[in-house]
């Protein structure tokens, strides 16, 4: 074999190796985009909007927000973003132009994402079909300027990647990471008037969710939480939406499952379940009353 032949063979070999690596990175990125629950909010399912093209209306106590287009469209989407732009957006809640995001975009949770994982997500997002859906301006109260978010962040935002607990095993830490980036806490943990999560009651559920509905306590409390669910019950639920009582979750949680958790491999769902099962059980008094009332009514019969 001549030197030229050898050079060509080596070139081809490294190119295929690179292509293989690139392919792996894209797949990993897609998996993480699913795991982080990006799809439900950035896709306007109700109005048959294109995948990740944004436009979904999110009504909150702080105004109505419209999710942005995160397809690879260079004008309306994030096609021009570098890996670092996405790292900055997810870990710091800051746009490429330096403006601050409203925390309705859950960077308070995404800050836990590892940089290498965000780079994989960026690589995948660049492969998403570009769609030219225009972004819609948020409808926020007059006082909620973007720069106010700098103050909000300074007061309440704790930035930092996920740190595994060295006292726990690999599966627990994988579960903790997935629950963190899946931003379960954004809905399942109660907030105070400033919109800050009350971590004393981490994942203990709330009475009035975004649609006025109750959001369940997912700590292992036996009475008001999911303490009677086995690890397998939880992972099966995250895969299928089926609760141990045969009922199926609807509404927002069904979206979380359909667009996100059902794509996860069994090992990962098992880890999430293991982590949730190992949390400190928290009694949610709002749900105690409800159950006791129910019981009292049944006793009358």
């Amino acid at each position: 074999m001549s030197r030229w032949h050898l050079a060509i063979v080596l070139c081809l070999f490294s190119f295929t190796a690179f292509a293989g690596e690139q392919e792996q990175l894209i797949l990993k990125g897609e998996y993480l985009v699913r795991a982080a629950g990006c799809v439900s909010c950035h896709t306007d399912h109700d109005n048959k909007g294109a995948y990740l093209a944004g436009g979904r209306e999110l009504k909150t106590a702080f105004g109505t927000f419209y999710t942005p287009n995160i397809t690879s469209d260079p004008v309306n989407g994030i096609g021009n973003w570098s890996d670092q732009d996405l790292v900055q957006a997810l870990q710091q809640g800051t746009a490429p132009d330096g403006s601050h995001y409203y925390p309705v975009f859950p960077y308070t949770s995404y800050t836990k994402l590892r940089q290498e994982d965000i780079r994989a997500m960026a690589t995948y997002l660049r492969t998403v079909k570009p769609v030219a859906t225009k972004n819609r301006a948020h409808e926020t109260p007059w006082y909620l300027f973007r720069w106010i978010m700098a103050v909000w962040k300074w007061l309440f935002f704790e930035q930092g990647e996920f740190i595994p607990d060295p006292k726990q095993d690999k599966s627990y830490n994988r579960g903790a990471y997935l629950v963190a980036i899946g931003h379960c806490t954004e809905c399942h943990t109660p907030r105070d008037a400033k919109g800050v999560l009350d971590n004393e009651r981490y994942l203990a559920g709330i009475k009035d969710g975004p649609h006025g509905e109750a959001i369940p306590n997912i700590t292992p409390d036996k009475k008001t939480g999911i303490g009677r669910w086995s690890q397998d019950d939880i992972s099966y639920y995250l895969k299928t939406g089926e609760r141990p009582d045969g009922d199926f979750s609807g509404s927002l949680m069904a979206e979380v499952i359909d667009d996100g958790s059902r794509y996860l491999i069994d090992d990962d769902l098992g880890s999430m379940a293991l982590y949730l099962r190992s949390l400190q059980p928290v009694v949610n008094p709002d749900f105690v009353k409800k159950k006791e009332k129910k019981k009292a009514a049944e006793d009358e019969w």
Binding site: S249, G250, S251, E255, I257
Partner: peptide, 19 residues
């Protein structure tokens, strides 16, 4: 059976609020 579950979930997603 999996399809049955998908049917239940699909319907609850579009037509039922959470608790």
């Amino acid at each position: 059976f999996k399809k049955v579950g998908e049917g239940c979930k699909g319907c609850h997603k579009d037509f039922r609020e959470k608790e």
